[in-house]
Simulated scan of single mutants.
Amino acid sequence: MNWLSDITPPGIKKIFRHREDDGNASLWSSCPSCGEMTFNKDLEAALQVCPNCNHHGRISPAARLESLFDNGKWEKVKLPGVTDDPLRFKDTKRYADRLRDSRRKTGEPDALIVGKGSLHGLPTIAGVQNFAFMGGSMGMALGEGLVKAAEEALVAKAPLILFTASGGARMQEGILSLMQMPRSTIAVQMLRDAGLPYIVVLTHPTTGGVTASFAMLGDVHFAEPGALIGFAGPRVIEQTIREKLPEGFQRSEYLHEKGMVDQVVHRHEMRDSLSSLLHVLMKRGGRSHTQAPATELLPAPDAPPAIDNAANSDAQPTEELPKAAE
């Protein structure tokens, strides 16, 4: 080593190095899609959506729930605890240590956060998978959390919205993690038996056993733009079938075109879209955020009475939500 190494890379990099992991260390963020630099406060106000290319970045569960519920107010639902590291699993690192690190990083006990509040006046339960917690992987805690969320919806007679983001089942829990697939299916069935809507919002990424279970069992499926949705990743599929996949394969827009997703919804429009849907499914009376005031719906005092053409129309009466066959 000599003095020259101190003024050439990587020496120069060491001089000007800054901590990327510290959220307060930088005032600007670069969009991973277009490379545009955006002021962090503006990006936060935009719900982590790039103002230049509309790339949907990752958003925290708390910010997600605040953007969903009225006035940003919601109450956190306490989820049941489970046994940590039941298999005493260890790969390059002990599972118990991974759990401890993720809990320290996120401040949450596991990868699912459930909150309750109101959505344009409609009582609603919402769950959010936290990708920052071990990739939002599905373990026993997440399975228990889903069952608890369904029970809360049953008690409140409210719909359940689930925002998915996961790499799949948690391998450190082996067969116990895979058992959460049928358990989550039972939770969804509980809602169907009660005639309560279960809406899934697929965010980037939603893959593996989560896609193969509760993520694809919704009454309606929304997806954020550009989200990766599938079981195996595109690279694995290409290597297996030895063919080049179509452009945009397994992305929200591709799945919407193929009928696997009902609607691709921009994050800024998600709250209103969910509210409109749930007010219809729950058949709530009164004024919603899209309805005109009652006075605007009434004819003028001097206007002739409206002719009822219902008998001649093709419109069909609204049916009750279907229940599972007994």
Rank of each mutant, 00 (worst) to 15 (best):
G23K: 12
T164M: 00
F214Y: 12
D101M: 09
A292Q: 14
A169D: 07
R17L: 05
Q263C: 14
V49S: 11
G121S: 06
V200Q: 08
G11V: 05
M270H: 01
K41G: 01
E269P: 04
E75I: 09
F89Y: 15
P322E: 09
M282D: 05
T211P: 06
V236K: 13
F69A: 00
R19N: 15
L154M: 03
A292M: 13
L4C: 04
K258A: 15
P80I: 00
S26Y: 01
M216S: 15
I175C: 11
M138T: 00
C31K: 00
N24R: 14
V261Q: 12
I7Q: 06
L112R: 01
L122C: 08
H55T: 00
E257F: 06
L160E: 08
T106L: 00
L228C: 09
K78I: 07
D193K: 15
E296H: 14
K105W: 05
P197I: 05
D70G: 05
G143Y: 02
A223R: 12
E152K: 07
Q189A: 13
P246E: 06
I199H: 10
V201F: 02
S26A: 10
E257Q: 14
V147S: 15
V82M: 08
G117N: 01
G174H: 09
S29F: 09
G135C: 03
P51N: 12
L297H: 09
Q129F: 06
L178M: 10
M134F: 05
D97Q: 09
A324T: 13
V236M: 14
F214A: 04
R103Q: 13
A126V: 05
M216L: 14
N130Y: 08
M260Q: 13
I59V: 06
G174S: 12
M134I: 07
L79K: 12
M37D: 08
G145C: 01
G143K: 04
